[in-house]
Design a protein around this nucleic acid. Structure first.
Lengths: 194, 194
DNA sequence: TTACTCATTGAGTTGACACTTATTATAACA
DNA sequence: TGTTATAATAAGTGTCAACTCAATGAGTAA
């Protein structure tokens, strides 16, 4: 690879990295000029690498979805399958909490392609969860509720905390603060008492 | 009241009414010009009645909060207290579903004052719910979970469905379609089996 | 009838921001 | 070494939307 190509790749990566940070902090409505400043390049440079702001967002969400997909583990057939899934789920979100919050909170600002990619990721998670629940029903008595509703209750609860971060945990990570409480509450809800 | 004063009041009401509809349909980022067109007045007229767009939104949210407050019933000490509360809650939201969705989905776009008013409304509902749960614990075995967590699970689930209306019910009302399923699922989760 | 008040108008101002393009500096390469 | 290709620049351009203000004309009151 020539010096020039290497330089170009570095600039592109820098822009992606800074865009991720700026959007995480200020939302997707943040001006592209702010990203350019953060990356230490001129405003025009962004449009050398990405044809539009939407294109830049699509690339970001693509990378992000790919990263999450490879991080979320599906522990099949384990006596603590559900719990492990939830713990892992929380950990993965926590690592990218700010960006994740923007994705769920500003999904209507996203380009169609980006929204679809993120939606697919969530559907894939829902399917994994359903599989785990099915297996778990053998070893543990669970409430008689369809697994989609069980998943929606979980994700609804977690998203509620994330979207109201300013209320629940204005300074640090919401997930860090409430991870255990959310998981134990949820497990308590879905289990059937002896 | 003189003809002139009456005319002025009518114009103001018309603007408020149309703003409610336009914001419900297109979100709070909708241009004020669209509201003027819908109300059949010139663009400038809006700023005769409301000093800024933010001021207009604050008035809208004030009226809305007031209306909700007077509609949400708190059925104290009843064997079906929780269920009645949930049914009433769903009905109230359904009557203003689109605007409610905008409030929870675009809360970061709201002026501080509007956001606070809506937050207070939710806190007040949470308190009502806690009271009802406390009473209900006498007559019905409920999961051993703090009432705030019980409320957050409920509101998280409902908001999840509302915020993903395009997924769950792209055409008609989400609440109408899922009201009973949401309530029965939730009641099943919080009760303790015999 | 006349002078005055005031709700309403709509063309204009201002600022923000995505995107363009002519130019520049430097790497690539014959 | 000189020519060419191209990454990057920075000063635009175009658009959109909130807000302003001088002008209008209809209601008010003597």
């Amino acid at each position: 690879m020539t010096t020039r190509e290497e330089q170009k790749n570095q600039t592109r990566s820098k822009i992606l990295k800074c865009a991720f940070e700026v959007f995480s902090k200020n939302g997707f409505a943040a001006p592209t000029l702010d990203i350019a400043k953060a990356a230490g390049v001129s405003h025009g440079t962004i449009f050398v690498h990405f044809s539009t702001k939407e294109d830049l967002i699509i690339q970001l969400v693509r990378n992000f979805s790919f990263k999450l997909r490879s991080t979320i583990i599906v522990p099949l057939s384990s006596p603590k399958g559900i719990e492990n899934f939830l713990i892992n789920y929380m950990d993965v979100i926590q690592k990218n909490e700010q960006f994740y919050i923007r994705l769920i909170g500003e999904k209507d600002l996203l380009p169609d392609e980006a929204r679809l990619m993120f939606l697919n990721l969530q559907l894939s998670n829902a399917r994994s969860f359903a599989t785990i629940v099915k297996l778990q029903r053998n070893s543990m008595k669970l409430k008689n509720i369809p697994s989609t509703m069980m998943f929606n209750t979980w994700i609804g609860l977690v998203h509620y905390y994330l979207l109201n971060k300013d209320l629940f945990s204005p300074k640090g990570s919401v997930i860090k603060k409430y991870r255990d409480e959310l998981i134990s509450t949820y497990l308590e809800l879905i289990r059937v008492q002896d």
